[in-house]
Design a protein around this nucleic acid. Structure first.
Lengths: 199, 199
DNA sequence: GTCTATATGTAGATAGAC
DNA sequence: GTCTATCTACATATAGAC
């Protein structure tokens, strides 16, 4: 197999294992086994575990950018774009109830490890933060767009954490509905205008 | 030193290390070093790492119960009791910005490890959940007391996670103010009545 | 109740054959 | 580019002296 293909497979498997079991708890042996590689050959592609982590974060950043661009293209209005973000909680509910939010839990783990990559991981949250702030600004909330973005991120993180602890799907659905209600009150004028031009 | 004293010290140190660096990342050697004990002697007090974790969770449950009772005794009104809970975010902001919420991050880590104690850890959240629900019920919100309790827990978890990722104290203060505003609108009648009988 | 010495497994990481 | 064999460090855990 070509080096780049093997490398991509390693990153994909590591990404999944880091999410499902955590960074520390995922060993080289675990990753190698799932890829179908010997431990030794591993080091041809990555010299240290931190290198794999950096590659995983870089890939997540790349994937997130692509997802945000897709939402930007597939959705007409800023309010619907924001809803695209909110609805990840529903779409990914099964994995979230088992493992939490991939971004939030990684940030938490790396913060505790005081890992060099902890700011890189937080950069993933910043991607969502800035994109959401852009949508709120487009809805006419320029003044507090960033605060609104952080508030929405805060809610999604809180919902994910409690969903994992209590494994309660109805809780997720109720909180998503509550976020939607919050969006309507916060951006009522813009959303009313928006409903006249559905996507 | 007496066995019970040493045991208590071990649990205290383990509690702190599990919070600051995580359960997996904290080794017996780390705990023994901070207690001032040899690794060997350790096993006189605890046979496995899971036993220490169980003791840590049990102590946290005990401490949490005591804290909730203190709030119950020191605070007159349900709304002020709820505010006691909310204000932990401010009081513990420095540790939260460094390590997150002790309860939420432990639940997340144990969920990923699929650890036998993950439900015990979630029980810590249940303590807060039931206590908060009791306060909301006392405010006349019997019908949705549990949903309000979960919503408040969700917010505190979300604030803690983002505070860790962005290490932004102003964000914490802004969201705490927002929670206070939410409390006022959610329980306006009860809170208005309450303000006539300040604690 | 605490110590030193040690057993055993597995982690991350390397060397060198093919 | 992949393998096997191996290294060192450190993890949990035990045995037995004091």
């Amino acid at each position: 197999m070509s080096a780049s293909n093997t490398r991509r497979q390693i990153v994909d498997v590591a990404d999944r294992l880091f999410y499902e079991h955590g960074f520390e708890a995922s060993s080289f042996a675990d990753i190698a086994r799932d890829v179908g590689l010997s431990r030794g050959n591993f080091y041809y592609h990555f010299k240290t575990k931190d290198e794999i982590l950096a590659a995983v974060i870089a890939q997540r950043i790349s994937n997130t950018r692509a997802m945000l661009e897709t939402w930007e293209q597939d959705t007409e209005s800023p309010s619907d774009r924001i809803l695209s973000f909110v609805h990840i909680l529903i779409a990914n509910r099964t994995k979230i109830m088992a493992y939490g939010c991939p971004v939030g839990t990684l940030c938490n783990e790396l913060a505790k490890l005081d890992h060099v990559a902890k700011d890189e991981a937080a950069g993933l949250l910043t991607l969502f933060r800035n994109w959401l702030a852009g949508q709120f600004a487009a809805l006419g909330r320029d003044a507090d767009a960033d605060a609104l973005a952080l508030h929405l991120l805060m809610r999604s993180q809180g919902v994910a954490t409690l969903a994992t602890a209590f494994r309660d799907e109805q809780f997720i659905r109720r909180e998503v509905a509550d976020i939607e209600a919050w969006l309507r009150t916060e951006c009522s004028a813009a959303l009313a205008a928006d409903s006249r031009h559905p996507a």
